[in-house]
Structures are given as C-alpha cells and as structure tokens.
Design a binder for these strands. Structure first.
Length: 271
DNA sequence: ACAATCGCCTGAGAGC
DNA sequence: TGCTCTCAGGCGATTG
C-alpha cells in the first residue's frame, strides 16, 4: 500500500512528465471516490499549467497556475497510471497533457482528491495541526520527547498519529521501531531519551532507503502503461511473522494486534 | 485532552 | 474447481 516513500516516488514520477506542462484535457471517469470530487475540478484543471509538484505527509500536491492545488491521497490501493494502454474500471480521474495521459486508479476507493487554494494549503483541514515531516529538520528528539511525554498509549500507535509525526504508516512504523530496537507495545511516555535518539534517525533512514529503492525502480516507469505507486521492498519485520529476526539473535518475529491493526516485531531485540 | 471504536471499499489469499 | 471467509488499512467521525 502506498505510504510516504511511495507517494514521494509517485510525485517525482509525475513531476517528470507534468512539471511546466499544460493540461489539455481533464475528465472524471468515476465520481464515486471515498469523498465526492470537489465542484469545478474539471473546469479548473482544463487548460491549467502545472507549476510544480510536492508532497505533504502521504498527500501528493499538484500546483497549478490558477492559484489552486490538486491534493490527492492514494488511500490503500491508489496509483497513477501513465499512458495506460487499456481502460481500468477503477480509473477515477484522467488528466492529459499534449504528450501523456494520467489516470488516477483506486480499486478500494480509500483515496480522495481535493482542490485547495495554494496559498492556504497549511489551513486545509487535513494539514492543519499536522506534525513535522519525518524527513525535515523539525523531527527532532526534543519534539518527540515533548509530544510523547505522559502519554500512556503504545509508542506504535502514537507514531501513527499524524499530529505527532506526519506521514508514517503501519509498515514504516514497524520497520523504524525494529531499527531503533524499541518494543512497539511500550507506552509512549516511557520510551527513554536514548531510545528516541535511535528512533529519529531510524525513521529517516528507513524512509530514505525506501525512496531510493523506488527511485531506482522509477526508470522503468518512463515507458507506456507505467504505474506509479508500488515498489517491492525488503522488510525486516513487516509481514514476517514466524520468521527469524534478521539480527540473527535467535528471536522470532511476532505479530500482535494494536488498535485493530497488526504490528510485527522481534521480542528478543526490541525492548 | 485523550482514548477507543466504527465505517468506508475491493482484491488477494487461505481454507474447504 | 469454485465457493466463502478473512484480512489489509488511512482517515474522519463519533462516542466514552
């Protein structure tokens, strides 16, 4: 499923074809996304020039010269298809430049798009109150220490809270906690400063490595019918229940439920 | 302020 | 083989 690295790679992939280009056509193929398409979407996009692309947390941003930004979330199964050779019944929104066609395809329809004035993006409901970007300078040990202070909820669940850190999902929280050797069940407020000092670089590294993997895969997406959104990555714990810990410490990866979702970890080295 | 639960969706995979 | 069942999960809304 698309998490921050997949969104980042998707945005970079789109930027190669969209940056500076004029959208000659736009149409809504299927209006039944998770939330309705914003009114005036097609009119706004048609003829607009894309001035740049960006990402905030797990949201992709397509800025236009009309002062409006198309914000998209890929949900669980969303992806952009470039120059698709065939139609897909789950293509919801299609935009075209002179050279290429892009289809936002989302079978499970957990994603959505919105139109936001570019100058007030920070005030958009999903962005207001969001925590720091994990790859930016604002994610610090001090920030986490303050945000987690006194919290009794499990660290795993708190890291999924976008107000504490923006853009972490289930996979990368599990992976980062493994790298930092922190027990995901531990109360947020009881995670030591030393552990947080391991966690901050662990979050950065796992995301950066995944983006790098996606980036290397990106070359393949220049061809027709390319799809932006999914990359095979080698995980240390995610989905590895019952398999040996990669630290080779004799531990076996366990799966537990937290907040109704699966958490994978090594009980031997994550404390 | 914090915590817990629910609803939204469909495809993949497991089990019979 | 084909059916049924379970699971995957981000986010907003709601309730406690």
């Amino acid at each position: 499923m698309p998490e921050l690295p997949e969104v980042e790679t998707t945005v970079r992939g789109l930027a190669r074809f969209l940056e500076g280009k004029r959208l000659v056509r736009a149409r809504v193929n299927r209006p039944d996304m998770r939330r309705p398409f914003p009114p005036g979407l097609v009119q706004m996009l048609t003829g607009a020039r894309v001035t740049g692309l960006g990402r905030r947390a797990k949201f992709g941003l397509i800025h236009t010269d009309r002062g409006q930004t198309l914000v998209f979330h890929l949900g669980m199964s969303g992806r952009w298809r470039i120059d698709p050779a065939t139609d897909d019944r789950h293509d919801h929104l299609v935009i075209e430049t002179e050279e290429h066609r892009f289809a936002l395809c989302d079978p499970r329809r957990f994603g959505w798009v919105d139109l936001v004035p570019t100058e007030s993006l920070d005030a958009w409901p999903s962005f207001a109150g969001m925590g720091p970007e994990p790859l930016g300078d604002d994610l610090t040990v001090a920030h986490l220490h303050t945000a987690l202070k006194g919290r009794k909820q499990a660290i795993k669940l708190l890291l999924l809270d976008q107000r504490i850190v923006a853009g972490l999902g289930n996979i990368y929280v599990c992976e980062a906690l493994f790298r930092a050797r922190i027990d995901p069940r531990k109360a947020g407020g009881s995670v030591s400063r030393a552990a947080l000092a391991r966690l901050v670089p662990a979050i950065r590294e796992v995301l950066e490595q995944s983006i790098a993997d996606g980036g290397s895969t990106l070359r393949d997406y220049a061809r027709p019918d390319g799809e932006l959104g999914y990359f095979a990555t080698r995980f240390d714990v995610y989905g590895r229940e019952g398999e040996p810990c990669r630290r080779d410490d004799g531990g076996t990866i366990r799966r537990v439920a937290q907040g109704g979702r699966s958490t994978w970890f090594c009980p031997r080295c994550q404390r």
